[in-house]
Design a binder for these strands. Structure first.
Lengths: 344, 344
DNA sequence: GATTAGCACTCTATTGAAGAGAGTGCTAAT
DNA sequence: ATTAGCACTCTCTTCAATAGAGTGCTAATC
């Protein structure tokens, strides 16, 4: 049998429909939905041919048809038009990729991973917004003659590494004196102080000598401001499916939706978490979507400042005895680690 | 009504049982399973009391009973014995937390996140094992008088930052000359070369002058060896549940299990991935567990060396046209980013 | 000769009724 | 105060009946 243009069109219609609906598709539906100018009976005959040729399959006699693997292969090799990403998508990706992770982010990521692994529940972590974040110090590491890494450390332990390219060749001497100058002017500065000092005459004088300074300021501001928004990390969402209470897929999806709604989640954790390990059970959470869940939270600190929170979410029949122990231990470990990292 | 010791024991039994089984529990079961020395009828009466007091609930008349929120609250506040983590668990956590992420790892993590977000499928990424990984250079950044950060860069772009504490005070001069010496001896070295040169007499002389050297070698070896094992990152596993083909929870769990089995997964990706974007459909994957899935892979490179692979896994009715475009774009972006990071 | 209308046929999914099973609550005996 | 015994209740499973969707085939039409 020969594959003609009409068969291809019908095949394409079946594939396109099945990709979006995941439902077997019948001849009548194609006739109505795709205006091919032929009746359902004709389509029926063609589909029968396509099945014989191995491009369509029937789950059972009286169902519509679905594409076979062979059909997908044909589609991938010959039919599909690759849909290029839009400009906006492209720039968004590049921005996200270029955005470097700081040390605290790394610790948090590790933390949620460990927590979910250890407890087999879904784990959460977030760092609090700090309004009064200050620059602790900044260092430069030469990579080659015209690129270097700037290492920015803040008082809440953010360590941000950024590669800077320079037009001119930078010498070790230059870097050393730059380091001295920058730390002299900006050490202990908040974002506001940074902005005001940039406007000062002193700064202008320096900036003339050290061209790099102009590039540097936005980086420092970023590092200080970055943590102002609440970002919530989650891991182990798949664990939800280990619990029979979520064997009903729609309930599971509800919970997943809440966990993906970072804003609502952040609000919830912020409202509940307090000093030490806290257990909130079901309705105590005061949230319709997770009335049948429990949440165990803990906080980690630098000095006496609370700089972040971790949480475990699971069914109300949670293994509290174990989870509480794990949370306590992890919160302590993070606190220690950040303290150590700040070199205290 | 008064809460006596026997009631507490029964309550504890119900909670303990329900935490593990998630099934309503009846009086007879308690009588048999927990040797309380009383008959099921007595337990029945007590459970009836506990229900009246608000500690137990019945899903329906002829079911067993389950703990109420109030019961959990009582359990958390008074009954439970917090189960401390074992020594092994504690050390494992600390090791994992202390293990710093390198730049490539960060890029990969970002990548899987972006991919799953963009495609709404489950995304995978892995970096290939490189047997011939070489040290590119190493730098030191002072933090304070007795701690510093070692920044280790390899030719495949791994940038590893490690904080080193020193007993002695380190001066900038000391660091500068250490940097010079280390890079002189070790630049371009592989693990083998590193190990052999450590045994040399030259090295011993230096090590005497630069105490830090002894701490440093294991770190460098780590950085070079780290990427020898295939680590697979995955993100967006929850997306599986957006597809009706996995509304059957057991099928979903099967797929999740494969994705969690990093070894099998690595084997699969390695076998399939090749130059450019590749699409493998259903049985082409030649793996029983995912015969109804498709896998789209791509590779990223440094120079002409393939140093990693990314993948998207989803139902065979995948949106190939979009996924193929995204994969191509991402692979290019990662390649660029790593190249840039190596300062080329 | 290709296309289409019409109709019998097939298979699934849903609905409702019947029966088995688990557990309770109550009563009476110990 | 505790326990044995039994009627009662509710769910879950099974099975048959029915509605619905879609096909394949035949005969009529363009």
């Amino acid at each position: 049998m020969k594959m003609d243009d009409r068969k291809l069109k019908i095949l394409q219609a079946v594939i396109a429909d099945y990709i979006t609906t995941a439902q077997p598709i019948g001849s009548r539906t194609i006739a109505k939905k795709y205006e091919l100018g032929i009746s359902s009976a004709t389509i029926r005959n063609e589909m029968s041919d396509l099945e014989e040729m191995g491009f369509l399959e029937q789950p059972h006699t009286s169902a519509g048809r679905i594409p076979s693997e062979r059909a997908y292969r044909l589609y991938v090799d010959r039919l599909m038009k690759i849909k290029k990403l839009t400009e906006e998508e492209q720039t968004a990706i590049m921005a996200e990729l270029g955005n470097r992770a700081d040390e605290i982010e790394n610790i948090i990521r590790k933390t949620v991973k460990i927590l979910s692994h250890l407890t087999r529940y879904t784990s959460l972590a977030m760092s609090s917004q700090l309004d009064d974040c200050r620059l602790r110090h900044i260092h430069f590491v030469p990579i080659d003659s015209n690129s270097l890494v700037a290492v920015i450390v803040t008082d809440s332990g953010i360590v941000k590494n950024t590669i800077i390219k320079t037009a001119d060749t930078v010498t070790p001497d230059y870097l050393e004196s730059l380091t001295k100058v920058v730390n002299e002017i900006f050490q202990g500065a908040t974002v506001e102080e940074l902005n005001s000092s940039v406007a000062s005459e002193d700064f202008r004088r320096y900036a003339y000598r050290y061209r790099l300074l102009d590039n540097l300021i936005p980086l420092i501001v970023d590092s200080l401001e970055e943590k102002k928004c609440d970002e919530v990390y989650a891991d182990g969402m798949r664990n939800i499916f280990n619990f029979p209470e979520y064997s009903d897929v729609s309930r599971a999806r509800n919970l997943l939706a809440l966990i993906e709604d970072k804003e609502q989640l952040a609000g919830l954790i912020n409202r509940i978490a307090g000093k030490g390990v806290k257990v909130s059970i079901g309705s105590e959470l005061d949230n319709e979507n997770i009335r049948d869940c429990s949440l165990v939270t803990a906080t980690y600190r630098v000095g006496d400042k609370e700089i972040g929170k971790i949480g475990i979410i699971g069914p109300t029949r949670m293994e509290y005895a174990r989870v509480v122990a794990i949370m306590g231990f992890m919160a302590d470990q993070i606190t220690c680690l950040i303290k150590k990292q700040l070199g205290e």
